[in-house]
């Protein structure tokens, strides 16, 4: 008798997930960023959500998933990494309900016709900082100086007020979201010189390389700098520190939004989850983890 009951329940759960998946596909709207937080009814969500993509957003998405599942025990959420490209790919293919990305989906996709189906939801802001090896006795660089260093015009720390030491540039790969933000907000029209310095694949590899290479400079997400044992030296840009306050007043340029991308308008649990990540309720956790809550940016 008992197992029959649980069978029934299982079949019901399967049907619901099936319906959810079906709903996601049917929609074809092109509305931008419809985060309707005001229509908040206390409904209970159920179903499974899978997220994949940006490794920069992954820790926040995981934390949000844990809290959301605690609130709605019938929802099961899986968060996977893979990179922003994977996020957009998977959501465009319908393999996951939410794709996490550091850049808007349209910037990654060449085929703009596909971009129409995808809706970007800004869920948080993320600040980045320039980091240097501890032996570098420079505390702040101007945007011009940063551009000159990464384009290879300045190669010695003494030219920007430091000691006589070679500058070792460490970049992220050309496809990295962090690097894309760096190019867009700091380098602007100046091209990063590919022939100087070295390239490291991840925040962790950058940290390792910065810590061990004298005179090295690179850039990492602030969310990565929070936590134990992260004693990388961060630089100010034009004398401005990377704080939420300075980003709100537009004094600090090096930051971007993080996106959760859905195919068509999100429904039910998916919408509930995205709203939850953006909500006041979750905002303090967002801040604690080194991201910028949407409530502070709007």
């Amino acid at each position: 008798m008992m197992w029959k009951k649980s069978m029934k329940f299982g079949i019901a759960a399967l049907l619901i997930t099936g319906m959810l998946a079906g709903c996601g596909k049917a929609n074809n709207t092109t509305e931008e960023n419809a985060g309707n937080t005001d229509t908040k009814q206390e409904e209970s969500y159920s179903g499974t959500i899978t997220l994949a993509g940006s490794t920069a957003l992954q820790p926040l998405a995981e934390e949000a998933a844990n809290q959301f599942m605690e609130k709605y025990p019938d929802v099961s959420i899986t968060v996977q990494g893979g990179g922003s490209g994977t996020g957009v790919n998977q959501v465009a293919a319908g393999a996951v309900q939410i794709g996490n990305s550091d850049v808007p989906s349209a910037e990654k996709l060449e085929d703009k016709s596909k971009a129409g189906e995808l809706i970007d939801h800004k869920v948080a802001g993320i600040a980045f900082a320039l980091v240097v090896n501890k032996d570098v006795n420079v505390d702040s660089l101007t945007v011009k100086q940063i551009q000159d260093i990464f384009s290879g015009k300045i190669t010695n720390w003494k030219d920007v007020g430091g000691k006589d030491e070679k500058i070792n540039v460490i970049n992220r790969p050309a496809s990295s979201g962090t690097r894309a933000t760096f190019e867009k907000t700091v380098m602007k029209d100046v091209k990063i010189n590919e022939a100087i310095g070295t390239v490291q694949d991840s925040n962790g590899a950058v940290e390792q390389a910065i810590n061990s290479t004298p005179g090295s400079i690179s850039y990492v997400a602030m969310s990565y700098l929070i936590g134990e044992n992260k004693d990388l030296k961060t630089l100010k840009i034009d004398g401005v520190e990377p704080t939420i306050e300075n980003i709100k007043t537009e004094k600090y340029p090096f930051w971007s939004y993080e996106y959760m991308i859905t195919k068509g308008e999100p429904k039910d649990a998916v919408r509930g989850f995205i709203d939850y990540v953006k909500s006041e309720e979750f905002a303090s956790k967002v801040k604690e983890m080194g991201y910028i809550p949407m409530s502070e940016l709007e």
């Binding site: 490209g85 990654k108 060449e110 790969p173 390239v199």
Partner: peptide, 16 residues
């Protein structure tokens, strides 16, 4: 270059 860029580019783009 494959391991670094494969996961960050989108299927169907010239880069990918």
């Amino acid at each position: 270059i494959l391991t670094m860029d494969m996961s960050n580019t989108i299927n169907g783009t010239a880069w990918n």
